[in-house]
Simulated assay, not measured.
Amino acid sequence: MTPVANARMYSATASVRADWKQLLAWALAHAGLAWDVIDYDAPAPLSALWARGDLGLAMMCGLPFSQRAPRPTLVAAPLPSPARYGGRPVYFTDIVVRTGSAFETLEDTFGGIVGYTLADSMSGGVALRNHLAPYRAARGMRLYRGAVGGLIHARGVIEALVEGRIDVGPLDSYYHDLLRRNEPALAQKVRIVDSTEAMPIPPLVATTPLTPGELARIRSALQEATRTPELAAVTERLLLAGFVSPDPADYDVLAAISLRAIPPFEEL
């Protein structure tokens, strides 16, 4: 079974998807690995992609990565280039509202309708619940009069905000920044009122066995891809400063957060 590669998680636009495919294909070719870079577009569930046993280089949410036993092989993690990431393999959940709304702070949204992508999504669900939990505990009462889930992805959150179905919702910050760089007209429809603490960014993983040589070559090729002039325009559009290979244990914090007694959205 020939391994495959995919960057669905951060394919924020059609052009960004093409850029990720070009970068991954370049890296695989320079690593001497004849793998296919496949499409796997929404609304196909990411959980089904991550359950495949033939992934050689695929982006995976850090939460299922941290929970899975045995864990996939952590190949590399992206380093977003915007200054707020501090050159670290981290991301945030941006908590956003519709641009034309009167909300200025997170607390202003209390009493409204909160939205989320999927309850088990780190950036689109768990991180937001974790961020809101102290407010819920301090107030001793519900923060929101209702919740709307199943928004699937960041675009679903933005659409729900624009249509007035929700008042506030979460966006993966790197995805959000990719939208701001590559589809500003859509990104300008929402604005940030708060962001969560930094968490380990979704990594590129393999669910298929890799030899030490294959792993070393693909890691080296990914690093080279962000340095070669041939891909300079691509990495600029991807807001990508490089790749690192963090310790898989760095992601344990995500599993720990998911085990906390955090109220579900319907009780926040």
Rank of each mutant, 00 (worst) to 15 (best):
G164S: 03
Q188K: 14
L238N: 08
E236H: 11
A221K: 02
Y175I: 02
D172Y: 00
E159V: 13
G242T: 04
A187L: 04
V234K: 03
P209I: 01
L238K: 04
S245N: 14
A206Q: 06
D250S: 12
A241I: 02
I158N: 12
E159K: 13
K189F: 07
L239Q: 13
A206F: 12
L179N: 04
Y175F: 15
S173I: 07
A241E: 14
Y174Q: 02
G169T: 08
D177P: 12
P246R: 01
R181Q: 15
L231N: 07
T196F: 03
V244W: 11
V205P: 06
A185I: 00
L240Q: 10
L204P: 04
P246Q: 02
R191M: 06
T211N: 05
P184I: 00
V162M: 12
T208W: 13
D167T: 05
P170S: 00
S173K: 06
T208F: 12
A233M: 11
A187S: 13
P246W: 06
L238F: 09
D252G: 02
E163P: 06
P246V: 01
D250T: 11
P184M: 00
V190S: 01
R219T: 06
L231V: 05
V162G: 05
D177G: 04
P209W: 08
P184W: 01
R219V: 01
I201N: 04
P209K: 00
V253S: 13
V244F: 05
V168R: 02
T196E: 10
